[in-house]
Every structure is written in structure tokens, then in C-alpha cells.
């Protein structure tokens, strides 16, 4: 209304045409909701379609009826995929490897980030820049020499090969955002601890990790996502289904089976996507903070 009173004298004839700020805001709000709803529907179509397919019997999928709805919910795909020994191996391998790699990643990045953020030494600045640059190295640039390197180390077609190569995808970014988080901790804290006679490891363990917990959580989520969802490395380095992990396993093994049972595949797909979705549902704020910190802090 303030604009109306201010402009009353000068622009009286325009009052009818110009909407007030309040009305403009209301209008903006409604168009925003409509636009969001349209995009949300568009974004949700593929996951919805996977879900519907996973709830159909193979007869219904083959019958050529409406692919977007199902007459009755059928949970048989889920029970049979859970009891499928191949799927169990994939899942177990994924869980095993992801846990190991996330732990390794956090140890390496916390140590390095602490040193790079707090204890400047000769070349530390350059080293931090180098860490950031390796974050920009895409996996598709190096998978072929890595294939040869792993073959030389006799690690081809061995799940544990991923424990060596996956950290290269997760560590640079985790170190980078932790440098930012550690760097933002006030120096008075470590001065106080130092006067009390704390060693560096004690300072790291008792001050930096607890204070930078949001950053640690964001980094952990990032490491988890990268490992759980990686497709190229397992596809290139693993061949047999005993060694496979979920992503490459579902795509290469279940598809090339004798019968293409899409209900099964989609059920496997949804079960494999569930862990990241659940983690995001509960820890989204941490993740977003970490993601945006990656480009702004450091």
C-alpha cells in the first residue's frame, strides 16, 4: 500500500493498471506454485513409472495394457528379488565396499584437511589447489589406464579393486569441503587447547571433528553417494557376478539374463535406489550445505 500512497499525487491515473506490491507478491506466489507443480510432476514421472512397473506381474507387463497404472498391487517381484542369490551378492558387495570406502575416505580427508587448513607448511597452498583440481578429473578420463594398472596389480575382477579406485572420486571433494569447514573454526579455540597442552591429534579429535560435525556429515553423505552410485568403474573392472556391485550388476547381469523380467529389474532398481533416498530424506540439509560449500568455501 505504501507505493500507492507515495505515488498517489504523481501517478494517480496509473493506479488502476499498476498492481500493488502485495498483489504482485500474491500473484508471484501462485504462479510459483503452479510452475513448481508442473516441474515436480515432470521430475517424478520416471521414478513413478519404475514403481508401477515393479508392482506388476510379468503377465500384466507383457499383456500391453496401460503401462502407467496397475489393476492390483503385486509385491511378488520384491519378495523374489530379495531371495535372488545374485541380487543378494550385489547388495552385500555394495554395502561392504561402500562402508569401507567411506571410512577410508573420511580418515584420509579429515587428516589432510586438518593439516592443510591449520598447519601451513611448504607448498600446502599449492597442495590444496591440487586437491581441488583432482576433484575435477572425471572418472572417464582415467578408467583405461586404471584398468591396465589394476591388471598389473592382479586386481581385475576383484571387488576390492574398488576400495583403491573409489576413494579417488570421493577424497578430493571431501578434503576440499573439510578444509573450508576447519578453516572457519575460530583460531582462539586451538590456541586455548594448545596452551592446555593438547597434541594435534587431541585437538583434531576433541575440537575440530565435533565443531565441524555438519561438514563431516556432508562429506560422509557425499562419499556414500559417489560410491553407491558409481557405474563406470565396476562395469570396467569387474566381470563375474560374484564380484559385482549393485549398479553395474543390475544393468549388466539381470538384463542379459535369459528372460527380461522388467518387474524384477524395476524392483531391484528401487531397492538399490532406496538407501540414498532414505539418507537424503533425513539429512538433506547437511548435504545441501556441503554441496554449496564446495563451490564457495575453501
Amino acid at each position: 500500500m505504501s507505493s500507492a500512497t507515495l505515488a498517489a499525487g504523481a501517478a494517480a491515473p496509473r493506479r488502476g493498471r499498476r498492481p500493488s506490491i502485495a498483489r504482485e507478491r500474491r500473484w508471484a506466489l501462485w504462479t510459483s506454485y503452479i510452475a513448481l507443480a508442473i516441474f515436480a510432476v515432470g521430475f517424478l514421472i520416471p521414478p513413478y513409472f519404475e514403481l508401477v512397473t515393479s508392482l506388476k506381474t510379468s503377465q500384466e507387463i507383457g499383456a500391453g495394457t496401460d503401462p502407467w497404472f496397475t489393476q492390483h498391487l503385486f509385491f511378488g517381484n520384491y519378495t523374489s528379488i530379495i531371495h535372488n542369490p545374485q541380487f543378494q551378492i550385489f547388495f552385500l558387495n555394495s554395502v561392504k565396499l561402500t562402508i569401507v570406502v567411506v571410512c577410508v575416505t573420511m580418515v584420509i580427508s579429515v587428516l589432510a584437511a586438518y593439516a592443510l587448513a591449520r598447519m601451513r607448511f611448504f607448498g600446502s597452498q599449492m597442495f590444496a589447489t591440487g586437491v581441488f583440481l583432482t576433484y575435477l578429473v572425471p572418472e572417464s578420463l582415467l578408467f583405461i589406464p586404471l584398468f591396465k594398472e589394476l591388471a598389473n596389480l592382479h586386481l581385475i575382477n576383484n571387488t576390492w579393486a574398488l576400495a583403491f579406485v573409489w576413494p579417488t572420486l570421493s577424497v578430493p571433494f571431501c578434503t576440499w569441503i573439510l578444509i573450508g569447514y576447519f578453516g572457519s573454526i575460530p583460531k582462539e579455540l586451538d590456541e586455548a587447547a594448545m596452551i592446555d597442552g593438547a597434541s594435534h591429534l587431541q585437538m583434531l579429535w576433541k575440537i575440530f571433528i565435533p565443531v565441524a560435525m555438519p561438514g563431516i556429515i556432508a562429506a560422509t553423505i557425499f562419499a556414500f553417494t559417489v560410491c553407491w552410485g558409481d557405474f563406470l568403474y565396476p562395469l570396467a573392472f569387474l566381470f563375474t557376478s560374484k564380484q559385482m556391485v549393485l549398479t553395474a550388476g543390475i544393468v549388466s547381469t539381470l538384463i542379459h539374463g535369459d528372460v527380461l523380467d522388467w518387474g524384477h529389474i524395476m524392483a531391484a532398481n528401487i531397492l538399490a535406489s532406496a538407501p540414498p533416498i532414505l539418507i537424503y530424506a533425513f539429512l538433506m540439509d547437511y548435504y545441501i550445505a556441503g554441496l554449496t560449500a564446495g563451490a564457495t568455501k575453501g
Binding site: 520416471p46 513409472f49 557405474f231 549398479t247 544393468v251
Partner: peptide, 9 residues
């Protein structure tokens, strides 16, 4: 969602 899995969908 891991892109490999959603692309399969």
C-alpha cells in the same frame, strides 16, 4: 537416485 539406475528406468 544413482544415474545408472534411473537411466535404466
Amino acid at each position: 537416485i544413482p544415474p545408472a539406475l534411473s537411466t535404466l528406468g
